[in-house]
């Protein structure tokens, strides 16, 4: 009995953390706001450095090893399997967003890849015109009009502003695995989380190094890349030209002869 409470407490704990951070972050955001909406920046930077440290001593070496030892078909199989396992979550969010076509694609992909694709190790559905896409409850909230909220960077999770952190918690409620392993040892869910992280890291070894090298402030760059990539995911890769900044009259001496609004 004792053990049971211990295990079931975890999702609740996560939900609790999400609720608290939303309150805290929300409260601080009201207090003061700069251009970046990052009121907890000192704390976020601390966790960022912490994650970077653990990346350097643990995740990156493991990912580098994985990348070197496991041949590419093997890694692709792992990726496909994990992606397929996520299908129920993607499907739930497709439906909640009213994306019926994409929901159909997700369901068909799951059927095809689980059977023809040998339990999801292969991705034949992609070759049959059913391309993979990702959805999560953070994106669903965004399509319902919820703002991202103040930026938040957490240990292990990484960038997790309130909307997306909430999405992370709700997504685990959409995931059948959560219930299958509700009061059993968490070996499988934990292994999945770890392997997923290692595989993702292995796929971005070079990229992350390069982004760090090409940035004069890695934390600020990651913050912006996170926001831009989220915005792009939410819009399913589309953007509206009209919403881009107005740069027509932008020069270093706009004040001088060509003041905006005074164009000939």
């Amino acid at each position: 009995m004792r053990f049971r409470t211990g295990r079931t407490a975890r999702p609740r704990l996560l939900a609790g953390i999400a609720a608290i951070t939303m309150l805290v972050a929300g409260g601080v955001a009201l207090a003061g706001d700069d251009g970046e909406n990052d009121p907890l920046e000192p704390m976020n930077r601390y966790f960022f450095e912490l994650n970077k440290f653990f990346d350097t001593i643990l995740l990156k070496p493991v990912a580098t090893w994985y990348d070197g030892v496991v041949p590419e078909p093997g890694r692709d199989g792992v990726r496909n399997f994990l992606d397929n396992l996520r299908s129920p979550v993607i499907l739930a969010n497709d439906l909640l967003q009213g994306e019926w076509d994409r929901a159909g694609t997700t369901a068909s992909r799951f059927g095809v890849n689980t059977t023809v694709g040998v339990l999801g190790l292969f991705d034949p559905a992609s070759n049959w015109g059913m391309k993979q896409h990702s959805e999560d409850f953070g994106q669903t909230l965004a399509t319902w009009g919820t703002g991202e909220g103040p930026y938040l960077f957490l240990p292990v999770l990484g960038p997790a502003p309130p909307r997306d952190l909430t999405g992370f918690v709700v997504d685990s409620a959409f995931d059948p695995l959560t219930y299958i392993y509700w009061d059993r040892p968490k070996t499988v869910p934990v292994t999945r989380f770890v392997v997923n992280g290692v595989d993702q890291r292995a796929r971005s070894l070079k990229t992350f190094d390069q982004i760090e090298r090409t940035s004069i402030d890695f934390y600020a760059t990651v913050r912006n890349l996170y926001r831009q990539s989220r915005a792009s995911e939410i819009a399913n890769g589309q953007y509206n030209f009209d919403t881009l900044p107005d740069i027509n009259d932008l020069t270093f001496d706009t004040n001088e002869p060509n003041t905006p609004g005074m164009r000939p």
Partner: peptide, 19 residues
């Protein structure tokens, strides 16, 4: 992890392409 991971996946080819 999914949040962070998906961002990584998205920006993976970024620098190469930038260059």
């Amino acid at each position: 992890m999914p949040r962070h991971a998906s961002m990584r996946a998205v920006i993976a080819p970024l620098v190469f392409c930038a260059a």
